[in-house]
Simulated scan of single mutants.
Amino acid sequence: MKHPFKKIVGIAATVAGLAIAGQSMAETKVGFVYVGPVGDHGWTYRHDIGRQAIEDKFGDQVKTTYVESVKEGPDAERVVRKMAASGHDLIFTTSFGFMNPTLKVAKKFPKVKFEHATGYKRVKNMSTFAGRFYEGRYVVGTAAGHMTKSNIIGYVASFPIPEVVRGINAVARSARAVNPDATVKVVWVNSWYDPGKEADAAKTLIDQGADIILQHTDSPAPLQVAEQRGVWGVGQASDMSSYAPNNQLTAIIDNWDQYYIERTQAVIDGNWKSGDTWGGIKSGMVEMAPWNDAVPADVVAAAEKVQKAIVDGSLHPFQGPVINQNGEQVIPAGEVLDDGALSGMNYYVQGVEGSLPK
């Protein structure tokens, strides 16, 4: 006769085995909060490419979701909180203005892991990450300094935060290193994504004499204006050459794929830890699109020499002397601005026209 207790134990063991098996096969839920639409062909588009890279890598093991065109501020906090409450294990919030909302939610959901792009506030379950985009802009500035005929480089800028200011200053420094007469004019649009405002800013800069247009905004509109007006433009965050096949000089490409895969793997493996990552050209987080065929070979060679020097560490875009717009020395020759000073950059360097908005 079979003992009933043994039967009960056997059933319990089977159920426990199924539970363990189910647990090991459970999906990891990864969410993304985007400041712009996935079709912006710039910043948000590249983050969404990174999200797709997670799906390609992990398949059914991971489920990703996203919310696009989220406004910075209270709306962001609501979206992030809803995502955290709906079973997500890892949440990427991808705009500077999402920092405080993400921090608030992270403190309320200690079991959820958060990754915030371009910020500086961290807690045990919230990391930060960013690209050293200023490295790409320094490379581009070298080419712009050689290519400009008017000595006016136009810059369509979003918000006067350190990340954007660094890029403007990097372009001015590298352009003037090869062409001391080069200047940078800036138009602020106070938006990350507003094709109409971005286009108007590019037109204004060209009307003021700019023959090269750069941008730290997310739509291809400034580049399209450059194409229409027959001046050079530089793509932002992704290769935008399809919008300006004749006039895209190059583009600075943000590549988040590997970082997103690694951080997702860390959550799956149970060894995710809070930290700060600031990757540049060397790490592959910042890439350069192919140079336009019409760019002279010696200009490409000069830009690529600078790029190589940044990678091997023999050149830093903010190695001294760094002189601000008022002629004051920020750091002397032989020294380099450290990451802390770069993270808080709130001044223009020599060669940038106008005053920095407060």
Rank of each mutant, 00 (worst) to 15 (best):
D339P: 01
K149L: 08
G233N: 06
I252T: 15
A199F: 02
I252E: 12
G22V: 02
V67F: 10
A289H: 01
V336W: 03
V165Y: 09
G17N: 03
A199S: 12
E163T: 15
A13P: 01
P162N: 14
G131C: 11
S219P: 12
Q258Y: 02
D338F: 05
F58I: 08
R166Q: 12
S238I: 02
P222L: 07
S238N: 13
N292R: 06
E27L: 10
V189A: 01
R263E: 14
S242D: 10
S343R: 13
F92D: 05
K29P: 01
I152L: 05
V35H: 00
V62P: 05
K2Q: 13
A244T: 08
K121W: 09
V299S: 10
T142E: 09
A177M: 11
H41V: 09
A170H: 04
P245N: 04
S158D: 04
G279K: 02
K308S: 04
D207C: 08
K203A: 02
Q236Y: 14
I213G: 00
D312H: 06
V187K: 12
G17H: 00
T93E: 03
T183C: 01
N169R: 03
N151P: 14
M285H: 01
G87A: 07
I20W: 04
R137I: 04
A53R: 09
Q307N: 13
H88G: 03
Q215Y: 03
A84M: 06
D181H: 07
E72Y: 11
R122V: 15
